[in-house]
Every structure is written in structure tokens, then in C-alpha cells.
């Protein structure tokens, strides 16, 4: 199955790719669930979704998936520099998404640090990381949908290997 322009994923890579997509979707859902909107807008009334109105549950899931995301990103980055870059190029859309992901991860790390018992940030910085984390995720969602519709992929095959 062709997942990118000219590059064919192995079975393991397909699993990782879908693992990443699923992680991002559930992270997004539980992240938005940190705002008190799921009960208000009946999401938690859907059978089997009552947990989505429990802020401690969504928060724990968000943290667990953030761990998985950090692991996946570390794997993808290391793999790219160790072998991937010889086989394929990153597209412009990939650079945009990587920039957004970098911002999301950094602000997320600060958000996690802020929640530790012995750490306190200034009010302005607290507000900044809260809103920028949300804002960057929203931009990422719009970008991901746009690239999905336009069919622009993360990677394209390295011409020197395209034989």
C-alpha cells in the first residue's frame, strides 16, 4: 500500500504510523476534554462515553498517551537520522507539522512541569503555555485535515533511491 509519494511502508512502519494517528486523535480528544464541554454538549451522554466527563480520567489518559507520543516521536526522529533520510525526503507539509508538533510538545512539557507539586510559574507564563498548547493543537488539526484533503504526504522518496 502506497502511503507516501513513492515510498512503501513496511508492516512495522504501518503499525507505527497508525499508532501515531490514533495517539494524536485520542490525545486531541482528551485534550479538548480538559475543557468543561463534553458534559455541556452531551458527548458524555453517548453510551460508553460517560468517562469523558471525568476530568481525572481524561487527564490520566492524556498523560499516558503523551508518554506514547514522546516515545514515538523520539523513535521517528532517531530512525530518520539513522537510516530514513537516506531513503526519503521530508516534504514541506512535514516541516510545517514538525514545527507545530515541536511547539505542542514543548508547551505540553511545561504544562506537565507546572502540575508538579514544587513548581510554580509566573501568571503570564502559565497563561501563555495554556493557550499556546491549545492554539497550536488547533492549528495542527486544521493543517492535518488540509493536507489529508489535498493529499500532501509527510515524505517523498529520495530521488537517488527511486530506481
Amino acid at each position: 500500500m502506497k502511503q507516501t509519494d513513492g515510498y512503501e511502508f513496511s508492516g512495522g512502519q504501518k503499525v507505527l504510523r497508525w499508532g501515531y494517528v490514533l495517539t494524536m486523535i485520542v490525545l486531541g480528544f482528551t485534550g479538548f476534554g480538559q475543557m468543561p464541554i463534553f458534559k455541556r454538549y452531551y458527548i458524555s451522554d453517548i453510551p460508553g462515553m460517560a468517562w469523558s466527563a471525568d476530568f481525572y480520567v481524561t487527564h490520566t489518559i492524556h498523560y499516558l498517551l503523551a508518554m506514547i507520543l514522546l516515545g514515538l516521536l523520539a523513535y521517528f526522529i532517531s530512525d530518520y537520522f539513522l537510516s530514513g533520510r537516506k531513503k526519503f525526503h521530508l516534504t514541506s507539509s512535514a516541516y510545517l507539522k514538525i514545527s507545530l508538533l515541536t511547539g505542542i510538545v514543548i508547551t505540553g512539557i511545561f504544562r506537565v512541569l507546572k502540575n508538579l507539586p514544587d513548581v510554580s510559574f509566573s501568571p503570564g507564563f502559565t497563561l501563555f503555555i495554556d493557550i499556546s498548547h491549545l492554539g497550536l493543537v488547533m492549528v495542527y488539526v486544521f493543517a492535518a485535515i488540509f493536507f489529508l484533503i489535498t493529499g500532501v504526504k509527510w515524505i517523498s522518496i529520495n530521488p537517488s533511491r527511486a530506481v
Partner: peptide, 13 residues
């Protein structure tokens, strides 16, 4: 979980 997060990137690498 926050403390355990440090392990995740190391596992990925």
C-alpha cells in the same frame, strides 16, 4: 506519570 514520561523518549531512541 509525569516522572515516568522521562523514560518514553529514551525507549524510542
Amino acid at each position: 506519570l509525569a516522572k515516568a514520561m522521562v523514560i518514553a523518549p529514551l525507549a524510542g531512541i
